[in-house]
């Protein structure tokens, strides 16, 4: 698509103006794409689940055009740094519809996703990927094989519930 940089800013705006974490922004866009965002970004499977190099490139572009800016913060416990994506200063026209989704849909879905940790989002996106891309029948076993201890602590249940609430 021609205006992928603007799309990043538009989704960020509809999602409340901020997305915390590079893993989270990837999973939010992946799940929104499945819901009808229509970005055309292609995804492949990586360490944290479905990932789009196209999206990463579009974020870089959105930063170049100042639709988006990225701040660095640190996790208090061990100082691990992470990125926070916020709206930039450039004028951005946010249309009422983004692909097949209304701006209200994007807001509602984003709120659902933001209520979960990024590990739960990672698991939810991975479950969806396993079911629909390689089409793994026993996705639970494959999920455990790929995600290890991340699948503990009730995270799989939360991920399944999130997918259900999103209608995926």
């Amino acid at each position: 698509m021609e205006n992928e940089e603007e799309l990043v800013g538009q989704v960020l705006s509809a999602a409340g103006g901020e997305i915390v974490g590079r893993v989270r922004i990837q999973k939010v866009f992946y799940l929104l794409e499945q819901l009808g965002l229509g970005s055309g970004f292609s995804y492949s499977y990586h360490h944290y689940g479905p990932y789009s190099a196209d999206l990463m490139d579009a974020i870089d572009g959105a930063k170049a055009f100042n639709f988006v800016r990225e701040e660095t913060r640190r996790r208090q416990s061990d100082g691990v740094s992470f990125g926070v994506f916020k709206l930039g200063e450039a004028d951005l026209d946010v249309p009422g519809e983004l692909g097949e989704l209304s701006a209200g849909d994007v807001k509602r879905y984003s709120e659902l996703m933001n209520s979960q940790s990024s590990t739960v989002l990672e698991i939810a996106a991975t479950i969806h990927w396993l079911q629909h891309e390689p089409g793994v029948e026993d996705w639970r076993s494959e999920l455990i094989a790929r995600k290890g201890q991340k699948t503990g602590g009730g995270r799989v249940g939360k991920a399944v519930e999130l997918l259900r609430n999103l209608g995926l």
Partner: peptide, 17 residues
Amino acid sequence: DIDPAADDDTDDEEPAM
């Protein structure tokens, strides 16, 4: 022991990894 969670994962409600 390190925390293998994603960079921004600071959710205190979930058991630590």
